[in-house]
Design a protein around this nucleic acid. Structure first.
Length: 422
RNA sequence: GGAGAGGUGGCCGAGUCAGGUUGAAGGCGUACGACUGGAACUCGUAUGUGCGUGAAAGCGUACCGAGGGUUCGAAUCCCUCCUUCUCCGCCA
């Protein structure tokens, strides 16, 4: 959420940056609501002052035997007027907040301007495409033939886009989770394990609501949502709090399953593990001082990349264009891993700086010791990494001519020393 | 799920059972100043957030878990909800 005062004083800039995303927004109505809001506050507070003054003098007047009844009657009317104004004000404020919650974040000037993912630009890459001396298989074939994933039975128990890992497949998934958590912990991220169901306030805080309700699984009876990413519970851990500057940066890593409806993805990636309604992810979340936000984004990206480097898998980093970047983000890097079985790069991590956009929604502030005023923190997050897709990448990049999988060096301690799967 | 007791400022804790100048006593903590060679102790002063207004100082207004009600006036009375603790039941 953007600051209404900032919008008013920087209207042209905000309009231009919103347009750069290709987003539409009715700024005129927003500003009119703000005028209305101020008018109502002014009139209401004048009347409240009047009422307060009377209330203070009331006991005195009564003591002196003065006429109280006329004033009482008058004050009753004043109170009724105040109540009406307050109600109107609450309505205007709610409408204004409702609008502000649907206005996307300002894009950073460093990101490419464009209409879609076609306009994303290469930031850097690492490693090289493996040159396999045989025709690489897709992960679903490998997983099926080695008995690592049972797609059919997963679908039987839950439906399409659900699968069941088994045997070494289940162990490999678990190994990846532990490997990622251990690695990120050793790089200064404090591990947290948070609820997998969250309330609407949390979903609003990180920006999934109100605009993207249809993407989430919801428990209607309880008003709870299955998290689409650990970003939601972890970021909202500090909602409404005032942090000490000395505690910043706060860095967390968290494992969680992620649940997504994948609305609008019908017929896309129907085979394999790439697009599931439920997948595992290790998420990185940071709360930092504004002046350190951009530096921290680069560090966050490095921490995510590090996992693929340790696994020895080729990838590239893309800077998302204004047409592809998410609603809440000011700047996002996607890490795309190379998948030989599908002969393409696939997103395996998304690292974003939200500036104070989420902090404003979730009301996360911090206090500087010397400075009296409070300031919103910057929040950042990124996958470190998406586990399911890492599983896919390991299978496709480490497949052997005989159909088996050689286990990446760093994962062997997590698999009882196993060097080969199959 | 049942019964009971609570939720007040950074923390502790009065005030609620007699509604009125209570943003809220007192203490702790913190900051600054005085004292000191330096420190402890002691003393003094200050110490919430949002919003409106203003160049600023300031002034005004709201907030005592959340929301609603009664009243000229609510931290205080009434209702609903959330949450914490204790006991019972159930359960991994």
């Amino acid at each position: 959420m953007l600051d209404i005062k900032y919008i008013i004083t920087n209207l042209d800039l905000v309009k231009e940056k919103t347009a750069r995303r290709g987003a539409e927004f009715d700024f005129d109505t927003l500003l009119a609501l703000d005028e209305e809001r101020k008018k109502l506050i002014l009139e209401g507070e004048e009347l409240k002052q009047k009422r307060n003054e009377f209330s203070k003098s009331f006991p005195l007047i009564k003591k002196q035997g003065g006429d109280v009844e006329t004033a009482q009657k008058e004050m009753k009317q004043v109170s009724e007027r105040i109540a009406a104004l307050d109600k109107e004000l609450a309505d205007v404020q709610e409408r204004q907040r409702g609008m502000l919650l649907t206005l996307p974040n300002l894009v950073d000037d460093s990101i490419p301007v464009g209409k879609s993912e076609e306009d994303n630009t290469l930031y850097r890459d690492w490693g090289v495409k493996p040159s396999l001396a045989f025709e690489p298989k897709a992960h679903w074939d490998i997983a099926e033939s080695l008995g690592l994933v049972d797609f059919e039975r997963g679908t039987k128990v839950a439906g399409a886009r659900f699968s069941a890992y088994k045997g070494m497949g289940a162990k490999l998934e678990r190994a990846l989770i532990n490997f990622m958590l251990d690695t990120q912990s050793s790089r200064g991220y404090t591990e947290v394990m948070t609820p997998f169901l969250v309330n609407a306030a949390s979903m609003t805080g990180t920006g999934q609501l109100p605009k993207f309700e249809e993407d989430a699984f919801k428990c209607e009876r309880d008003g709870l949502y299955l998290i689409p990413t650990a970003e939601v519970p972890v970021t909202n851990l500090y909602a409404g709090e005032i942090l000490d500057e000395a505690d910043l940066p706060i860095k967390h890593c968290a494992y969680s399953p992620c649940f997504r409806r994948e609305a609008g993805s019908h017929g896309k990636d129907v085979r394999g593990l790439i697009r599931q309604h439920q997948f595992n992810k290790v998420e990185l979340v940071k709360f930092v001082k504004p002046e350190e936000g951009w530096k921290e984004l680069e560090l966050l990206l490095s921490d995510a990349e590090n996992i693929l480097q340790l696994l020895g898998i080729h990838y590239r980093v893309m800077t998302l264009s204004t047409g592809d970047i998410g609603f809440t983000s000011a700047k996002t890097y996607d890490i795309e891993v190379w998948l030989p079985g599908q002969d393409c790069y696939r997103e395996i991590s998304s690292c974003s700086c939200f500036m104070d956009f989420q902090a404003r929604r979730a009301n996360i502030r911090y206090r500087k010791p010397g400075d009296k005023r409070l300031d919103f923190v910057y929040t950042l997050n990124g996958s470190g990494l998406a586990v399911g897709r890492t599983f896919v990448a390991v299978l496709e990049n480490y497949q052997l001519p005989d159909g088996r999988i050689s286990v990446p060096e760093v994962l062997r301690p997590y698999l009882g020393g196993a060097e080969i799967i199959g």
